[in-house]
């Protein structure tokens, strides 16, 4: 079973306008376990998730989920494929016109014909798992950012998916809710036997839960391996990123002409 990768990304090319975002990305993601995709801001990590979810069309290359090409599916087949995926968005993306309870119930209501009592039980179970059973009557605007993300997580697991994509789950969280989320992701993954893909640039938190890590930069996979092997990686770019050094091969400065000559040319371009 674990020989065939659950998700395979092969030779992925994608560009937005003139800007090349991916120039041949290859990845294999094994079933069960948490795979982290890391990279500096602007390296297209979220775009990669959208490509895996079939929301964007690559210029070249394929994304296979259990051997099926995501981008070769009919609209209907793609939507049914997505029922087996959950995705947690950066902002939570709760439906602002529905209460917490209805948000979590939403996937159940649209994809199943379960009777109301059973929907209620399932929703309360999922909310209990994220510790927000008591907040079910609140509206999304009444939640803090961390709570919203936890509700979104409950919604993402409502249909018991096999794959969950996390888009920057830790960004902008205080240390407590960050710790809560880290624990949740790890626990859910073990308890439900999920396959998780976590996109993040919060190195410390991500490395504590990830089983395998891909580092993307410049549109390519720069390094991959277990968290331990990356920690001692000799590549200066990898070690700069993993250890969070401000300057290094990934420059602190946006490309510019030499500072001194720029300052001394008053009539130059602004």
């Amino acid at each position: 079973m674990s020989d065939t990768p659950f998700v395979a990304v092969e030779g992925l090319h994608f560009s937005r306008g003139d800007k090349e975002i991916f120039r041949g990305v290859d990845m294999t993601i094994q079933r069960g376990g948490i795979t982290a995709i890391m990279g500096p801001s602007g390296s297209g990590k979220t775009t990669l998730l959208k490509l895996i979810g079939g929301q964007l069309l690559p210029d070249a290359g394929r994304v296979l989920i259990e051997g099926q090409d995501v981008h070769r599916q009919s609209r209907k087949a793609l939507f049914s494929m997505r029922q087996r995926m959950g995705m947690l968005f950066q902002s939570g993306a709760l439906f602002s016109d529905l209460s917490v309870f209805e948000n979590v119930a939403f996937p159940l209501r649209v994809h199943t014909d379960l009777p109301g009592a059973m929907v209620r039980d399932l929703v309360l179970m999922k909310l209990e798992a994220v510790g927000l059973r008591g907040a079910r009557t609140l509206m999304p605007s009444e939640l803090s950012g961390g709570m919203a993300r936890r509700v979104a997580l409950a919604r993402a697991i409502a249909l018991d998916p096999e794959l969950i994509l996390y888009d920057e789950p830790f960004v902008g969280q205080d240390p407590i809710s960050m710790g809560v989320l880290v624990q949740l992701i790890k626990r859910l993954n073990q308890a439900l036997g999920l396959t998780s893909i976590v996109v993040s640039h919060d190195i410390k938190e991500t490395l504590t839960i990830a089983d395998y890590v891909y580092v993307i930069a410049d549109g390519q996979v720069m390094a991959h391996g277990t968290p331990k092997s990356l920690d001692v990686d000799q590549d200066p770019r990898v070690s700069q990123f993993v250890h969070g050094e401000p300057d290094g091969p990934v420059p602190f400065h946006y490309p510019a002409v030499d500072f001194v000559s720029d300052m001394l040319s008053p009539g130059g371009p602004r």
Partner: peptide, 9 residues
Amino acid sequence: TSMEMIGVD
């Protein structure tokens, strides 16, 4: 987008 990912058009 999240609606799309839940599988609802």
